[in-house]
Design a binder for these strands. Sequence first.
DNA 1: CTGTTAGCGCATTCAC
DNA 2: GTGAATGCGCTAACAG
Lengths: 319, 319
Amino acid sequence: MANIKDLAKMANVSVTTVSRVLNHHPYVSKEKREAVWEAVKQSNYQKNINAVHLSTGKTHLIGVVLPYSNHPYFGLLLDGIAQEAVKNNYSLVLIQTNYEEEREIKALDMLKHKQIDALIICSRICSWSTTYSYLEYGKIVFCEDTRQHPFSSTFVDHYTSFETALTHLYNKGHEKIGYCIGRKQGSNSINRANAYRDFLTKNQLPYRHDYIFDQCLFLQDGEKVMKQMKEMKEPPAALLVTSDQVAAGIATYCQNNNIVIPHELAIMGFDNDPISKVMGITTMEIPLVEMGKHLFIQSIQDEITYKEMGVSLIERNTV
Amino acid sequence: MANIKDLAKMANVSVTTVSRVLNHHPYVSKEKREAVWEAVKQSNYQKNINAVHLSTGKTHLIGVVLPYSNHPYFGLLLDGIAQEAVKNNYSLVLIQTNYEEEREIKALDMLKHKQIDALIICSRICSWSTTYSYLEYGKIVFCEDTRQHPFSSTFVDHYTSFETALTHLYNKGHEKIGYCIGRKQGSNSINRANAYRDFLTKNQLPYRHDYIFDQCLFLQDGEKVMKQMKEMKEPPAALLVTSDQVAAGIATYCQNNNIVIPHELAIMGFDNDPISKVMGITTMEIPLVEMGKHLFIQSIQDEITYKEMGVSLIERNTV
DNA sequence: CTGTTAGCGCATTCAC
DNA sequence: GTGAATGCGCTAACAG
């Protein structure tokens, strides 16, 4: 396959000139420019991007770290990221971690090895100290509050939004409120746990550890929760569910088992996933696509910025 | 940042030797080997992958073309691809096309420019003649029957599986059977359309073009279909829905509007998406994750192979 | 077992 | 406006 040198010969110019016209630089005479394009056509020339990468030190590739690509939450985030990537002429390298730290480290290493220009971590597993050691190799952007750290981020105030949701439930007359969460350890989860405790304290409600259900990520996890609840003497009468998928799973289970919503069980979801609309589930809307777009933009910016996005309550029929 | 040359100096060996130990080649004396590793540590050396790529002509990157990354069908396929990619130490470049041909061409160009080693096209838009012109640049793998073409593929017999589904519906007493499809033009869609026509002919049933609903991809499209049906004088009494997501949307609509399933409307989905299990929807299982895995394997193999996978009927409560 | 040398293909500085 | 020369960092014949 022809390279830039061949073109130079064919067009009777130097490689520099070829490079100039290929990259649309000014100051090339019309004749030479045309001669080069002619040579390009004749030879079916194709630029070798890797050579460009090596020479420029940039790849126009952004890494995206997420635990599961087939979960709507991350799907939506990814959608936003992808939209903005296309717009800015970047491509995305997908790194699915399944929450295995080793994979996340591999992603970080890609940054170190210059395989990608920047990294967007949608859900972090590894410690801050680990991420700090990659600071010098390129931009790393997070989807959680990093205002204590030198990394850009786009996030949502999970403490406040959880508080808002709990208060909504409380105002509707619920006192026995439990919640479902994905993993207990994430920083977002910790914020929510704090909001939950503070809410209970403020309203003089008892804390019951069995009102907290974790490992709730997918639709099918809803049934699991309901079965656990069935075994309880005094199950919660309202559930704050941090994923509309799980909320939908719970709602479906209730329908199949003649549990009346919201009378016997109130449900409040999160995300405003399309499924919550279809099923009429009250939810806290998180602007995932917008967040994705913003995450991408931050990944190609030099400055470190922190962007908080708003969450809004969408009332439907399950509370 | 240190490079291989610096290491050579530090360890008092040649760059070749450094390269050898870095790549775990045999035939290097223990002392030199250790000296090199020592230098690596001292200098915090990081390999520049782009240089490797340029030098070897390979990137260990596979492109994945799909219309929407936030659709469960493609999410599952992607999951399979990703699993196998990790296993083989490859990374994935995501190319979301939204069914825009231009994007698909860009993906093909990435192959041409050696940015990726191979390309997996999960759902094709561009013509075969277009793809043929990229034959020489690298492996291209498809998720549709390509036995007429020099491209590897992993696929499902959509004609037969559609026929099986229709027959199942028919045997259950349904004659007024309609179907929902994503887009009319895809090769899979054409196979299904043929199966549908042949089925009607065989059973001497009338063909009604208004029994075919297209643009049915997402959960929320179910409502659209039902609203269309409401306007019909003689709506279908059974629906074959090529996506469990849409089937779930339809089922939910029926529940909300007191339409009794399967008595008033029978529904049969496709994919065996988790949602079909949760909602008890009868469906045709497509082994998407397995297909994804196989697609990946084909993408890194030299030979052209064709792999057909089986589809199986899963009876639940909607037929 | 080890080192020299020649690429890989392109971008870019600098001098003309 | 143009081109020669150098560098990007690594791999791999080839010779020893």
